[in-house]
Design a protein around this nucleic acid. Structure first.
Lengths: 186, 186, 186, 186
DNA sequence: GATGAATGAGCCTTCATTCAT
DNA sequence: CATGAATGAAGGCTCATTCAT
């Protein structure tokens, strides 16, 4: 794996996190990555591609991290709680990546490229919600609606934690996961 | 109230919604608002100020809209449900403003200026959550955490509705409000 | 007519003449034209468009200049000699424009845009050559070939005059025009 | 003679012919020549030197080709016609090199380096024109002027042939050579 | 107040050249 | 000698802001 490529991605990650995508210039990226301007273009065809790669790889890592240890053969309830908890835990261990991933997902040109992509994590959550409903464990709500609400809640939690608006210790996390479950359990 | 000022704000709102803040130029705003470039600078000292005014006024209008008809003397449970429902309803009636407000709230220079601002809506929600807890109606969780989760959920719902990911009819809204309540009720 | 537009075109003309198209930068054009960088882009969408406009307008002026006083009702021989002489004279009065026009006509992106354009001057020359042949005044050669040879000869003459390789006084011009005629007359 | 050096020159020739000097990058040259970037710089100190070498060697080859079989002891008239014909024939056999040579001769930095260089071909043509005049075979025109006109005519012919504007078969070539002679013969 | 042509700092990107391997 | 990743100066172009009308 190329060392420079990684330096560039890390520099981009930190700068976008600190200043917002809009205010990050390629010159800044080069300086922070300790690399010549032109080197960036040996690895990424354009600024958009660079940012999109950053997004993709962070998202990929997050999905792997969250699904690590996920056991599709366990009872549904356990799997739901596992995914909820695992997502929050990942957000706490990698808050920059977690938030950045969700911020970048809102950027128009990234939305454009991500259209119709469904991640294994989305699939797992959808799958488990569907199963839970079949087993009469959940309220009779649209799985999509549940999915949206749960995701929105988790993102908001991690974001608020990052900005110090709230503090998420393990006890609190437990509570939020339970609340999530209570919201939709039959 | 100046007519031109309002034309400018409306043009900005629509352009930012359609193209994203990043891709909106002052020239576009002037053309869409049927106004000379320089006129914008008679009302707003800079592009940042223009966008911040747009944000503030949309947020203000949203708060007023949500709190309209709110009765602080009603029982706590009713007030909680009223706020939840009213927020979602506002989002459905004014989706552009609702989503734009939340998008802009993420932009660095707006976060900077908004720091430590607490809106009447925040106050009302916090107040009602606190009261509900005092009356032993809610789980023993930090009111801040509840607040964050509820807000995150509602934003995600309206956003998903906008992008057609889900469809919110009145029945579904009822379900989500109930789910919200179930999540935190004792 | 816009003053600045003309300043820009003149500055471009002189710079391209002095340094060659390749080495002229937009910054140089702006400085020479006593104009801000951005002003150029109020009048021309890109560097290519600027250069192409310069080319078109110089060519247009040259055509008008050469055809000025041309009388399509005169005998063929007179018209041939008139066109030959008039072209050389124009080249001597406007050597920069004359040479630049022929240089730019070789540039790929200008060739691309000029494809299939036939100027009134081309038409007049073709017309007169064709007529002369019908009157048995010329050798039985393809008019196109004659046209190419005559044009090539004239351009070479003016070019060599510019670079001081030869000197074209009125007597010499007379000789060249006669030589041209002798080359193709029956 | 180095093989790689030649690959580089050939690659340069083809690329300049296809895309124009301006749009050819050293990276393209290296790829087309199947050679590393740095290798080019082992043979040519800079891009300008590379292009100038290409120009010089093509011109050299052309001169040799045209003068091949030229017999300085023949009568003047024969020699004039031989040179005219030989030049056109060379242009038809090596159109890329012929046109490229004349195109590159216009490029500022090549003009700079070529200043005051007189080729054996120029010398032969000048010589023969001078002799012809001494023998009263030609009009009393400056040999330089004749030289310029003849060269201009031939270049224009081959160029027009390349772009399919005209078609030069052997009969047509004969006609053009005759026309050339008729233009200047006494 | 209203206008929009003019401005130029600053951005993204290219590409001739170098140098460690 | 050969290689090609690395370099960064320089180019074309954008756009927030100004100011003469």
């Amino acid at each position: 794996m190329s060392n420079k490529r990684n330096q560039i991605l890390l520099a981009t990650r930190d700068l976008v996190f600190e200043q917002g995508l809009q205010d990050v210039t390629m010159t800044q990226v080069a300086q922070r990555a300790q690399v010549g301007m032109g080197t960036i273009y040996n690895y990424f065809p354009s600024k958009e591609d660079l940012v999109f790669c950053l997004f993709s790889e962070m998202k990929e890592a997050m999905i792997l991290g969250v699904l690590e240890g996920y056991n599709a053969t366990q009872p549904v309830v356990e799997r739901v709680l596992y995914l909820l908890n695992s997502t929050v835990q990942y957000g706490l261990r990698h808050p920059r990546e977690f938030l950045l991933t969700h911020q970048l997902a809102q950027v128009p040109f990234i939305q454009e490229r991500t259209k119709n992509n469904i991640s294994p994590l989305d699939m797992a959550l959808n799958q488990v919600i569907t199963e839970a409903q079949q087993q009469q464990l959940l309220k009779a709500m649209s799985p999509d609606v549940i999915f949206v609400m749960v995701s929105g809640m988790i993102n908001a939690l991690v974001g608020a934690h990052m900005t110090q608006q709230i503090h998420l210790d393990q006890a609190t996390i437990k509570q939020t996961v339970v609340a999530c479950w209570d919201a939709f359990k039959r």
